[in-house]
Amino acid sequence: MKIRYCKSVIRNNYGYGLTMIGLGIFAVYINSSSVFSYLWIFLGILQAGTSYYRQRYQYLTIKEDKLIRHTIIPKSIALSDIRRVKKFMDSYKIETHNQSLRIEKNFIEKESLHKLNLFLENFKPKVSATLR
């Protein structure tokens, strides 16, 4: 199951990246000897690349045995290792015995957020004897 980003998040990041590239090209046109002009182009490419990555891989993937949050360095948690799911107003915190994963609700589209809520409501975390 894929938990998707809001389209507005991806679109805004992509637009911001293109704007930075445009400003960088304009700055190079005005003053090609300035390193900062090229920095704008580089940062714009990074921003647009991040937007492309988010569109391709989306926010979360829930497979049969693990949950993966896609970032530059993807973070995954085995579903069997989950000890606790904390629900906050604007996020979820999923904890294992040695790591945690925060899921921000603001980035998730409404339909995917509904799927995630159903999954977390039906999910029964494994509680060890040491936590009781």
Results as ranks from 00 to 15, higher is better:
36 F>A: 10
31 N>F: 00
98 N>P: 00
111 E>D: 06
46 L>M: 13
116 L>V: 06
116 L>E: 06
87 K>A: 05
68 I>G: 05
104 E>V: 07
72 I>V: 09
91 S>L: 07
85 V>W: 00
94 I>Q: 11
101 L>C: 05
115 K>Y: 12
124 K>G: 05
88 F>K: 09
123 F>N: 02
23 L>I: 11
51 S>C: 04
92 Y>K: 06
29 Y>N: 13
67 L>H: 04
51 S>R: 02
49 G>C: 08
118 L>N: 15
39 L>P: 01
64 E>L: 12
40 W>M: 11
121 E>P: 00
94 I>N: 02
85 V>G: 05
119 F>A: 05
23 L>A: 12
100 S>P: 01
118 L>P: 00
84 R>A: 02
111 E>Y: 14
68 I>E: 01
46 L>R: 04
85 V>R: 00
31 N>P: 01
127 V>W: 00
117 N>K: 14
46 L>F: 15
65 D>P: 01
126 K>L: 15
120 L>H: 11
121 E>A: 13
59 Y>H: 14
64 E>Y: 04
75 K>E: 09
117 N>E: 15
107 F>T: 07
44 G>M: 05
35 V>Q: 06
80 S>K: 07
32 S>W: 07
22 G>N: 11
70 H>V: 09
97 H>K: 10
126 K>D: 14
68 I>K: 03
59 Y>L: 04
115 K>P: 01
71 T>V: 10
85 V>Q: 03
43 L>N: 05
103 I>P: 01
100 S>M: 08
24 G>K: 04
45 I>A: 15
97 H>F: 01
31 N>Q: 07
28 V>T: 08
76 S>Q: 14
70 H>G: 09
125 P>F: 03
116 L>W: 04
46 L>H: 02
90 D>Q: 13
88 F>H: 12
78 A>D: 14
57 Y>D: 07
45 I>E: 03
48 A>W: 09
104 E>F: 09
90 D>R: 12
23 L>F: 15
117 N>V: 13
127 V>E: 15
114 H>L: 06
113 L>P: 06
89 M>T: 11
58 Q>R: 10
73 I>G: 08
44 G>L: 07
50 T>Q: 14
83 R>V: 06
68 I>Y: 05
75 K>N: 01
76 S>G: 03
45 I>S: 03
93 K>I: 08
128 S>V: 11
24 G>Q: 12
96 T>W: 00
51 S>M: 02
96 T>I: 08
109 E>R: 10
58 Q>I: 11
58 Q>N: 09
37 S>I: 03
107 F>K: 04
74 P>Q: 04
80 S>I: 11
32 S>V: 05
40 W>L: 13
87 K>N: 06
